[in-house]
């Protein structure tokens, strides 16, 4: 998404979800499916937000705990948690979130810059903010979610 694109009023569909009390959203085009939590096989020597891998119809799917990734506390997942299967670059990843809340139709000119009040750690993953009906929804930059190689090795 370039700045130029955000200026235009192109309509887009977003999926909104909750982590704790906060609402986030991602472009619906990146989401492949939404499924309930199943226990993951832990991976050795990975950051705490890496919940491990699960079997998604024969594919090995890594699960990232978004709350942990955003520095909002590590999730202890249970059956009520949800995995959003998303496509990031050429990889398929599961994002562990509390619940999916909404499907939104918005235009890009409704995006506002991220306010300074947001926690620095979250801010690093947020592209902008939508304000609808008094709700504040952060648009996530999916390509920043994946751990970079050096970070994973250091962890």
């Amino acid at each position: 998404m370039t700045e130029a694109n955000i200026q235009t009023g192109a309509r887009r569909e977003l999926i909104a979800f909750r982590i704790g009390e906060q609402e986030f959203c991602v472009d619906i085009m990146a989401v492949r499916e939404i499924r309930g939590w199943t226990p993951a096989t832990p991976l050795p020597r990975t950051p705490g937000y890496m919940k491990g891998v699960i079997n998604l119809r024969g594919a090995v799917l890594p699960i990232i705990d978004l709350s942990g990734r955003f520095g909002l506390g590590v999730t202890e997942p249970n059956a009520r948690h949800v995995i959003m299967v998303v496509h990031i670059r050429d990889r398929t990843i599961g994002l562990l979130v509390d619940a999916v809340s909404d499907i939104l139709q918005l235009t890009d000119d409704q995006v506002q810059p991220t306010p300074d009040v947001a926690a620095d750690e979250v801010k690093a993953f947020v592209k902008g903010i939508f304000a609808i009906d008094g709700r504040m929804i952060s648009l996530i930059a999916l390509d920043r979610i994946l751990p970079t190689e050096p970070e994973a090795e250091a962890a």
């Binding site: 096989t41 991976l43 891998v53 024969g58 594919a59 090995v60 890594p62 990843i93 190689e149 994973a152």
Partner: peptide, 17 residues
């Protein structure tokens, strides 16, 4: 054999899944 690198990355000590 399923590669971990398809969707994630290589992990030291683990050959595959």
């Amino acid at each position: 054999i399923k590669s971990l690198e398809t969707n994630y990355q290589a992990i030291d000590g683990v050959a595959a899944a």
